[in-house]
């Protein structure tokens, strides 16, 4: 990662497809979390690994262009989601962090369960991605 293997054609080509699969799987894990193994933690870690694969395959400078935002921002956004979900329930006179769910008929998907827990889990997801990525990137970037 520090000295990027910029000319490793094989790796880069393979990684392009692999990351797409890993990303897709991580989103699946995240959304499926409520009903089958997965959730914010696992999805977040999977996404982080997908990013890490990309960083391994490509140069850091290229990655900087592809992903222009700072991963630390994700931590803040994630915490806001977590706390915001909690406070939202307070606005309706329920105790902090009361979660709700209901089923909504959505065309094409049929009855879909929507829960406030999902937005909370999204917060977890973002914090995990942000924390894992920023820890690793900041260490990797520390060249003295």
């Amino acid at each position: 990662m520090r000295k990027s293997p910029a000319n490793n054609m094989m790796l880069q080509t393979a990684m392009r497809y692999i990351t797409i699969i890993v990303f897709a799987f991580s989103f699946y894990l995240f959304f499926a979390g409520h009903n089958s193994p997965g959730g914010g933690f696992i999805g977040g870690l999977m996404t982080a690994s997908a990013f890490l694969i990309l960083y391994l395959a490509f140069d850091k400078k290229i990655m900087k262009k592809v992903i222009p935002f700072d991963f630390t921002v994700l931590i803040g956004i994630g915490l806001l989601f977590g706390v915001g979900t909690g406070i939202a329930s307070m606005l309706f006179d329920y105790p902090f962090l009361t979660q709700f769910f209901d089923y909504f008929p959505i065309p094409f998907f049929g009855d879909v369960e929507l829960t406030t827990a999902l937005s909370f889990d999204l917060g977890v997801y973002l914090v995990v991605v942000g924390a894992a990525m920023s820890i690793i990137l900041v260490i990797a970037g520390d060249d003295e």
């Binding site: 979390g33 409520h34 089958s36 209901d102 827990a117 889990d121």
Partner: peptide, 9 residues
């Protein structure tokens, strides 16, 4: 809580 995965719930 409307979830099947108890750990996640």
């Amino acid at each position: 809580a409307g979830g099947y995965n108890i750990v996640n719930v």
